[in-house]
Design a protein around this nucleic acid. Structure first.
Length: 283
DNA sequence: GCTTGCGCCTGAATGC
DNA sequence: TGCATTCAGGCGCAAG
């Protein structure tokens, strides 16, 4: 499941791999993969064909190729998306949804098993596509204002994990990294945000950054074949995950068995001792 | 305006 | 063995 570090790995691969290339043609094999395109398939094909790639940018889990310094080919990997750079005569990939031919004979291939991800062309979206302007800056963005995030989080009337997952407050944090960061900061996921001290929220942001920096160093998290870089190689961070997916295993800090609890139709993993439940939890 | 819950989707794992 | 069910979760949108 690609989260922010994985998306950044893909962005870097695109930056070194396709900036300077021209898109010579586009084939869409699955309409759902371009469902966010205003104007549909015709607009998508017309918007991407013949354009030169002049940059590769990212905000949170959205990434985009800059087209002729003006427009943007925006991608979201969703749950299972991959962007691969392949020779045109390479074996067909599974779940291939969209192909862009490049001027040097290679192809950009968008593969996506569950089709939660997708592509669209954004007019005048080079700097920040207007369709994703509501997505907040992410923890790896040097322009993220921590003080502002801390204020916004504490103003919320919700639980701290819900706040972490809200892409309008801070982006790029998914279920896995939320659990890892909360464990590091010794915070329970149901801690009401309006009872948190500023220092606690700052500590949490630092924990988020630390987890993501380590993941990035390892090349992104991979639990199965669903996440790969642009060359199709998986990451190796899964060995470093401390609590996520480790129900019943001892907490590395205190030895107490890690607990799994249902949360927002998914799961939260916590150490019941290091992350005690607040007196008045906000689920 | 803010917060919450649902539906989208496939395939691996699990249950009977 | 084979079929049915469960689970994974980011995002946009509707409802409260």
């Amino acid at each position: 499941m690609p989260e922010l570090p994985e998306v950044e790995v893909v962005r870097r691969g695109l930056e070194s791999g396709v900036v300077g290339s021209r898109i010579t043609g586009v084939d869409v094999f699955e309409a759902r993969s371009i469902r966010r395109q205003v104007g549909g398939r015709a607009e998508f094909v017309a918007g991407a064909t013949g354009r030169s790639v002049t940059g590769a940018r990212r905000r949170g889990k959205f990434l985009w190729l800059v087209l002729d310094d003006r427009d943007a080919l925006v991608a979201h990997l969703g749950m299972s998306g991959q962007i691969l750079i392949r020779p045109a005569d390479a074996e067909p990939d599974r779940h291939l949804r969209v192909v862009a031919g490049l001027s040097d004979g290679r192809q950009l291939r968008f593969c996506d098993q569950r089709t939660f991800g997708g592509l669209f062309v954004s007019r005048d979206g080079a700097k920040l596509p207007p369709e994703i302007a509501h997505i907040a800056r992410d923890p790896l963005d040097p322009e993220l204002d921590d003080d502002q995030v801390v204020t916004a989080v504490r103003r919320r009337r919700t639980g701290v994990k819900r706040a972490l997952l809200d892409q309008r407050l801070i982006s790029g944090i998914g279920n896995i990294y939320a659990d890892e960061a909360l464990w590091r900061a010794r915070l329970h996921y149901a801690r009401p945000t309006d009872t948190m001290r500023r220092s606690e929220v700052h500590r949490l942001l630092e924990a988020v950054r630390a987890v993501m920096a380590e993941a990035l160093e390892a090349g992104g998290t991979s639990f199965d074949a669903l996440y790969v870089d642009v060359n199709g190689n998986g990451g190796y961070f899964e060995r470093a995950l401390t609590v996520y997916g480790r129900e019943g295993e001892p907490c590395p800090r205190c030895g107490t068995p890690i607990r799994r609890r249902p949360f927002m139709n998914r799961s939260s993993y916590t150490c019941p001792r290091c992350q005690p439940r607040p007196r008045r939890p906000h689920w």
